[in-house]
Nucleic acid binder design. Sequence first.
DNA 1: ACATTGACCTGAGAGC
DNA 2: TGCTCTCAGGTCAATG
Length: 264
Amino acid sequence: MPELPDVAVFKEYLDATALHQTIRDVEVRSPEMVKNASPDRLRKKLVGSAFRESVRHGKFLFVRVDDRGWLVLHFGMTGFLKYAKHGESSPEHVRLLVHFGNGYHLAYDCQRKLGEMGWTGDPRTFARARNLGPDALAPAFDLERFREVLEGRRGRIKSLLMNQAALAGVGNIYADEALFQAGIHPGTPADALDTAEVERLYGALRAVLETAIACRVTPEHFPEDYLLPHREEGAACPKCSGRIARVRISGRSTYFCPEHQRKH
DNA sequence: ACATTGACCTGAGAGC
DNA sequence: TGCTCTCAGGTCAATG
């Protein structure tokens, strides 16, 4: 599930629920998912402290633990957060459980274990070490930076949009959506886009990510002409008379409209 | 250096 | 019902 907009919503959720409460206990239930630290060290860093703020970069969420450092969360394809009163039924695949002094807990659930939990002294250092590109929604990621990202890239534009080293945060769904809104074929070589297309794609990308966050990632709340609620082979295109087609790009299912997303 | 594939993990749903 | 196959919004190491 989680791409940039999902993680942005998780951040809002965490900020609204889990800040400034003493952490009474921590259960690392899937220690094999802990990277960059031993599960025990991670636990000890958290216990007795409190979450103070959070920062998102791409699909990563960082949570500051007083002045000790930052908890790192990545949600893979199936991760999410759940804040609840202790004793209430918890989700099925809890990998990390943080108990607060107020009788509530924050659960990190990740069915497929493709996410990770970790520890870092500083999110920016972490992003650099992981070779993450600029966050796709950062103010500094302007049209000029986007042009630089595309420059000299012969690969398909959709693959590049999903490449976290080029720009961070975009995954399969929102790469498709941005290309759909911009009217660009997902298989177009990145450096073959003309000036107008680059501008259109940049605008579409930012708008799509912001809209998804504003809709709290609920497809039923998305605008009428979005691809997301129509991601099915043969579905009617919400923009024109075309039918949605499905191809495979970079090993991922790619949905697009062959009518208004023409090949060069 | 860059681009694409397969492996990793688990579960749901389709088809026989 | 049970089996097999495919698919799922993630990333990384290995390959071309």
